Simulated scan of single mutants.
Amino acid sequence: MEQSRYQEIALDIAHSVVMGEYREGERIHGRSTLAGRYNVSPETIRRAIAILQNAGVVMVNQGVGITVSSKTQADKFLRSFNQKAEIQVFLEELKSYMDKRRELDHLIEGHLNKILMYSDRMMSRWMDVAEIEVGNDSEAVGKTLAELKIRERTGLTVIAVVRGGYEQFSPGAGFVLEARDVLLVVGSDQGREALQEIL
């Protein structure tokens, strides 16, 4: 807070010079008086004056004290500080954007991992697809999938039926089976054995 305070005092004095409260060549109050005016320590005033002296706004001479040297430099000092303040705002905004981007990257990574996991599961399911043919004398000929209750009786999922070289994906419950149809199913080995008995 002390550092921020002496910067504020330097700005206030420079502003007073620009506004004509202190004129070029005019002596400013001594450090002790300024310390009382701003209610800070003399060391804080010394730092504020050092900033202004370095910027060419005031001169400090032994026995003379603090004298205003340039209104133009005071104006430049204020403009320079304002530019620094703007840069600081830009930096803070940039940091905020970067934090948001990191958060977004984290969310994207999480969704990507979910998609990869889901894809792995789907790939493993498709790798377990079995083909079971409906026999010519099968009791399943002429019956619908709903009537056969394949899922209830076997636990298998019929993902497609191949008929005459064409695949009927996701057949509905009313799909009627014909001889030589090939059912593409996903499920356990026990379920496949049970389906073969049905067909």
Rank of each mutant, 00 (worst) to 15 (best):
T33H: 05
L199M: 09
A194M: 09
T33C: 03
E24L: 10
D105I: 08
L199P: 04
T144Y: 02
D181L: 06
L148S: 02
Q53W: 09
M117N: 15
E92R: 15
D75W: 11
L177S: 01
L91S: 07
E2G: 11
L91Y: 06
S41W: 06
D128L: 08
E147H: 04
G172T: 03
V58Q: 04
P171A: 05
L145P: 05
R151S: 09
S188Q: 02
T33Q: 09
V134R: 00
V60Q: 02
G25F: 02
N61E: 15
R192S: 03
G155E: 02
S170T: 12
K95M: 07
A160N: 06
I49A: 01
Q73N: 15
W126I: 13
S170L: 12
L148C: 01
K149Q: 12
M19T: 10
Q62D: 05
E167L: 15
E86C: 06
Y97R: 14
I9V: 03
L116R: 15
E92H: 11
P42D: 02
S80K: 09
V161D: 00
D181R: 04
L184G: 08
E21T: 14
S119L: 15
L199T: 13
I198A: 01
N61D: 10
E26V: 03
A55T: 02
I108Y: 11
A173R: 10
E197K: 14
R47F: 04
E167M: 14
I51H: 12
I13K: 01
M98R: 12
A35R: 00
Y166T: 13
E152T: 06
V162R: 07
V89F: 11
I49K: 01
G25L: 03
I66Q: 00
L104Y: 14
I150L: 02
T72Y: 08
G155L: 04
E92F: 10
T33F: 06
Y97E: 06
L177C: 02
K84C: 05
F81H: 13
M123E: 11
R5I: 14
V141C: 06
E93Q: 15
M98A: 12
N61K: 15
E86Y: 12
G56R: 01
G25R: 03
E86N: 11
G142I: 07
I108N: 03
G135E: 08
S16Q: 07
E43H: 14
S96K: 07
L107T: 11
V162F: 02
L112P: 04
M19S: 10
E24A: 06
Q196I: 12
G110T: 14
W126L: 15
N82G: 08
L94W: 09
N82P: 00
L11R: 10
V17E: 00
K76C: 04
I150F: 03
S41Y: 07
I9R: 01
Y118K: 15
R101A: 14
D189H: 12
F175D: 04
F90S: 10
Q73K: 14
K84D: 10
E109G: 11
I132R: 00
N61L: 15
T67S: 09
